[in-house]
Design a protein around this nucleic acid. Structure first.
Length: 319
DNA sequence: GGTAGACCTGGACGC
DNA sequence: GCGTCCAGGTCTACC
């Protein structure tokens, strides 16, 4: 009998708002079902992947997350599934932390925004970040779809998941370039996968115990990870004290914040602008950017994965 | 420490 | 439909 898990969420958690809060919810193998307002994706286990449907029941006093799988999970798999879903949905971010953010930046108190969607594993977040560098959004969408189709294992339902570090560490660079169309990122992806697969990255230190400064310095030593990617990976680990500045930030500075100057000057002004938000500055920056996107394309909860590739071309954002 | 150029893909545009 | 241009972050070489 297929497994169903119930996971208690923090009192302020809202599935639609908190899933549709960061672009990775649109990248394969994630699939936001707009009509049913639920998340579908394959989760990876040692015994094989399983397609999971995640929705929310409004039980009291706190809402429940319901995860329905396409096969039976054993006890160990259930424990792993809970941990992965908790990471994706930031269920371990307590209401108190969100309230602290809203105290620093009250603009988001009414909507309750504060959690940012992420992947079930740090490895997937790192690879997704590499596929978002030096490329426009449609290419990022395609790279992730192809990585899953070419290298991911299929669940009982026939839907592929995201490839594991072990799998990508053994994948030929020619396959990544030729079939997944990742371009020059091929070798960097394999090198990163090898580091994760052999345990050369202390995930507990990176995610929990290291200081923000130490972790940032470490991340920029990894292949394919520069200052932007490191800042982005930091926020995906729940470390919001740094910005991840790219050309989108420059556009935001000009069009939304009304700043002027050269790109270098704008980067410095952006840092100064968000400095007062302290440990929450990435959140403040990101929800401003997210608001802009939603003003262009409607509520993120209505975005369909396959349509966003054309919605977020540079030309459309300039309009 | 700062800067220039290469890396690769795919969208936009002109013909 | 084809060819060309350009955007995008990281890395390396060079000053």
């Amino acid at each position: 009998m297929p497994t169903t898990l119930n996971i208690q969420a923090p009192a302020d958690f809202q599935l639609a708002r908190d899933v549709c809060s960061y672009g990775y919810f649109l990248l394969a193998p994630n699939h936001w079902d707009v009509d049913q307002q639920l998340m579908l994706r394959v989760l990876e286990f040692d015994n094989g992947p399983s397609l999971c449907r995640i929705d929310q029941t409004r039980s009291k006093p706190t809402p429940n997350i319901r995860a329905r799988f396409d096969r039976t999970l054993d006890r160990n798999e259930q424990k792993i599934a809970r941990a992965k879903i908790t990471r994706m949905l930031c269920l371990d971010t307590p209401h108190a932390e969100i309230k602290a953010f809203h105290k620093v930046d009250p603009r988001w108190k009414k909507s309750g925004a504060g959690r940012l969607f992420r992947s079930p594993t740090l490895f997937e977040d790192v690879i997704k970040t590499v596929t978002s560098c030096n490329v426009t959004w449609p290419s990022t969408v395609n790279m992730n779809r192809r990585l899953c189709e070419v290298c991911g294992r299929k669940s009982a339902s026939g839907v592929p998941g995201f490839p594991t570090a072990k799998k990508l560490a053994r994948t030929r660079v020619g396959t990544l370039r030729g079939r997944c169309r990742v371009g020059y990122r091929d070798q960097r992806i394999v090198d990163l996968a090898k580091l994760f697969a052999k345990g050369a990255i202390d995930e507990q230190w990176v995610q929990e115990t290291g200081s923000d400064d130490e972790v940032f310095k470490f991340l920029v030593t990894l292949p394919g990870i520069g200052p932007y990617a490191a800042g982005n990976i930091m926020q995906l680990m729940g470390r919001y004290s740094r910005l991840a500045l790219d050309t989108e930030s420059v556009r935001h500075a000009k069009t939304v914040l009304g700043m002027t100057g050269t790109d270098n000057q704008l980067m410095k002004r952006l840092k100064a602008h968000y400095e007062p938000f302290g440990d929450h500055q990435f959140r403040s920056y990101w929800f401003e950017l997210w608001d802009f996107y939603q003003s262009k394309a409607g509520p993120a909860t209505t975005w369909r994965r396959d349509a966003t590739a054309s919605m977020f071309t540079a030309a459309n954002l300039q309009k």
